[in-house]
């Protein structure tokens, strides 16, 4: 398991010639989280939240300023080389591979850097090329690859050492939808096979689909954590229910008002009456029952629950004070 306790990473202020250094920045500020094997854990936040810095510390690329990070009990500072054998990092943006080598040569070279046994390496390279759909382009120099192909090769590179923990920083950035879908399937399979995955992504549907547990950070601090469903429910954001009637029914407005939720009345393009209901709970069932009992004929009923994206935005807006405290409390209770 990867465990961070009160992780802090402070970047010194930038020095400029003949000017005093700027203020230091806490990119990560007392973050405690755990990434178990065999599960996909999400790390979410807005830009500048400290996600990438956190991932770089977990990947041993940066050292923590204070706090501790362990991977299977090994400290990232004192056992960096041993940890590097167990982890890998895939970052979005199609870099991290050699442009003047072919896809196969890249994987061969990284296999050597990870000391993958020769008996295993060639088979693994073939499997990974197949997995990311680059078998036909394996002999092509990477500088001739499209952006998506480079990103797919970068994904294969990240799997070359069969890592026990995989850190994914926006892995589907720039990928076509079918390839991104395939990658999500790969990630889910890896987790099923026992790999611990940490995922950051701007595509929150991806996070909702893959992650059993999500940490939300803002300005380096933990704001909240839980399952995507629990996080969404915890924000108490309103469900919206849109209802359209076949024709005007005088008793319906009173019946809707009796539900006690905030609502708006209007008409649609065909001059049919519409009701827009907002409530912390899903009142679609109660609304439909009330409308029918009041003599209304429903032609359309659409329910929009709050999404994880809505929840993240709400949490980011509500931090730092209350959110950070509740986050710490949640971590402590875990």
């Amino acid at each position: 398991m990867i465990v961070t306790q009160e992780l802090r990473k402070t970047f010194p202020g930038q020095r400029k010639l003949f000017r005093p250094a700027g203020p230091a920045t806490d990119a990560v500020d007392g973050l405690s989280l755990s990434i178990p094997p065999g599960a996909v854990t999400g790390l979410l936040g807005l830009n500048g939240a400290g996600k990438t810095t956190t991932i770089k510390v977990l990947a041993t690329l940066l050292r923590p300023t204070s706090g501790s990070v362990t991977v299977d009990g090994l400290d990232v500072v004192t056992h960096a080389r041993e940890i590097r054998r167990r982890i890998n990092l895939i970052a979005g943006g199609e870099r991290m591979v050699y442009a003047r080598l072919t896809g196969r040569e890249n994987l061969w070279y990284f296999g050597q850097l990870y000391d993958v046994p020769r008996a295993v390496l060639n088979t693994r390279i073939d499997e990974l090329l197949e997995l990311v759909g680059l078998t036909d382009a394996a002999g092509t120099v990477v500088e001739r690859y499209s952006r998506g192909m480079r990103q797919r090769l970068s994904i294969a590179r990240g799997l070359i050492n069969a890592p026990a923990y995989l850190l994914l920083d926006e892995p589907t950035l720039g990928l076509d939808a079918p390839i991104a879908r395939d990658l999500r399937a790969v990630v889910a399979n890896l987790a099923r096979d026992g790999v611990g995955v940490l995922l950051t992504s701007h595509y929150l549907a991806e996070v909702e689909q893959l992650c059993g547990h999500v940490y939300v950070v803002d300005r380096g601090r933990l704001v909240a954590q839980g399952s995507p469903t629990a996080l969404t429910a915890g924000t108490r954001l309103p469900h919206t229910v849109e209802l359209t009637l076949a024709e005007h029914a005088p008793a319906v407005s009173a019946a809707v008002a009796a539900l006690g939720a905030e609502f708006e009345v209007g008409v649609d393009a065909e001059e049919r009456p519409t009701f827009l209901l907002r409530s912390p709970e899903d009142l679609a069932g109660e609304l439909a029952t009330a409308v029918v009992r009041a003599g209304g004929a429903i032609v359309r009923l659409e329910v929009n629950p709050p999404t994880l994206e809505d929840a993240i935005l709400a949490m980011a807006g509500a931090s730092p004070a209350v959110g950070a405290e509740s986050g710490r409390a949640a971590v402590a209770a875990r």
């Binding site: 990947a59 690329l61 080389r81 890998n88 990092l89 970052a91 591979v97 990284f110």
Partner: peptide, 8 residues
């Protein structure tokens, strides 16, 4: 980064 990330 990918080079430093490797244990070599």
């Amino acid at each position: 980064e990918s080079q430093v990330l490797a244990p070599a």
